[in-house]
Nucleic acid binder design. Structure first.
Lengths: 215, 215
DNA sequence: TGTCACTGATTGTCCGACAATCTTACCTGA
DNA sequence: TCAGGTAAGATTGTCGGACAATCAGTGACA
């Protein structure tokens, strides 16, 4: 059995990026917060160069922005950003759902239904944060089932940005609707109905207008 | 008039990344070529740390790959990679064409037609490399017209990877067909026919099968 | 023949230093 | 009072050197 993934072989640069990223998407670092290389280096017990590469990484993920010689700060999403994220996400998910439906397997269908069951369970409660994450987990599962590495990587970037936004906005919606609105999507994929899957994927996304309205 | 773009204010890290990237997409650095940090540092007259950040940047663009403690090397595209690039590109371009058609302006239409004229001119000759670049320039113009920053950035990544592939494979196709096959796409966008634009975008792309066949 | 230790090459990470640039606060003069 | 300039401080940009960690190849040895 391959346990190499369990062993900590990741570079310190990557680990630092992970930790900082987590703080951002969890909302502990709110938009506009300034990140200082020397402070982070001291905080994590790493050298400045190592932190620097981690920050550059997060910069390419658009989670933080940089002004030359002035500093890094957690990105602030504008209305345009939300529109871009929402439209891009819709397009990519439509593609993912189509591909997933094209070569769905019995094992894949089982997996997908399990994730959907998790979502339904969360929707029975009132923990909006948990519901949001279960929602994203379902969509992420679909992307993974598409068997498209670049698509998955691209989707991940968007997902991180959306998470960082969602965690700071106390959203309110009807949990029951969220749960049931994904049923058609899951069914279409599991039954291999490619066109239906692509169409349902577009429907099941909370779009930017709705997110903005929440603010 | 804003001439800030003309002044060299870019960091050495970015400039180094640009130079190396150009060598890759131009085919001077063929897939599999190893890139050594110290050698590049000496070659460009920069410190190793600066080169290192540039290489990380190129790594996130999937132009080079890295094996821990072993080294960097120019990425080698597999059949799966070509499929991913082609399908992702098709999806993104369909989206771009739709958006471009939605809010096309007179100035935008002029610009697009100019780029298309360039392509036609190239197709009159036999310089396949020039044709390929003019082709990509047209598609890039459409992406820019979509007014979608993230879409443009994502498209750029794919474009760079395709260029690096194309420059090493001596492709052969009929120049006349390439030129004329884009006419419907340009017209649909300029006339604001969104659905036609999206459909034509998909048609006008040389897909992965064709590329692979060339090898 | 297969295994092990050794060696060289390259990246991973740290430290310290200084230059370049932005930010801020203060000061000056009309 | 306020526009504009100046100086100080903070932060990033870039450099050089150093050593550890790891990988790839080589050769000796059982």
């Amino acid at each position: 059995m391959n346990k190499s993934a369990l062993i900590n072989k990741r570079s310190l640069e990557d680990q630092a990026a992970d930790l900082i990223r987590e703080d951002i998407v969890n909302g502990e670092l709110t938009p506009g917060t300034r990140l200082v290389e020397t402070s982070l280096a001291k905080e994590y017990g790493l050298s400045r160069g190592t932190i620097r590469i981690a920050l550059h990484q997060l910069g390419t993920e658009s989670l933080i922005t940089q002004v030359p010689y002035a500093g890094w700060s957690v990105a602030q999403l504008t209305g345009q950003d939300l529109w871009e994220l929402s439209t891009l996400r819709t397009t990519l998910e439509g593609m993912a759902a189509r591909l997933a439906a094209e070569h769905i397997t019995a094992a894949g269908a089982e997996q997908l239904k399990a994730v959907y069951a998790d979502l339904l369970e969360c929707c029975a409660g009132e923990d909006f944060n948990a519901i949001t994450r279960a929602d994203l987990a379902l969509h992420k599962a679909i992307v993974d089932l598409s068997g498209h590495g670049r698509l998955a990587r691209q989707y991940q970037l968007i997902e991180n940005q959306l998470l960082s936004y969602i965690s700071v906005s106390n959203q309110s919606f009807d949990p029951a609707v969220v749960g049931s609105s994904h049923r058609a999507l899951v069914d279409a994929i599991c039954e291999g109905r490619v066109d239906d899957a692509a169409a349902e994927a577009v429907h099941s996304i909370t779009d930017a207008e709705q997110l903005q309205q929440v603010l």
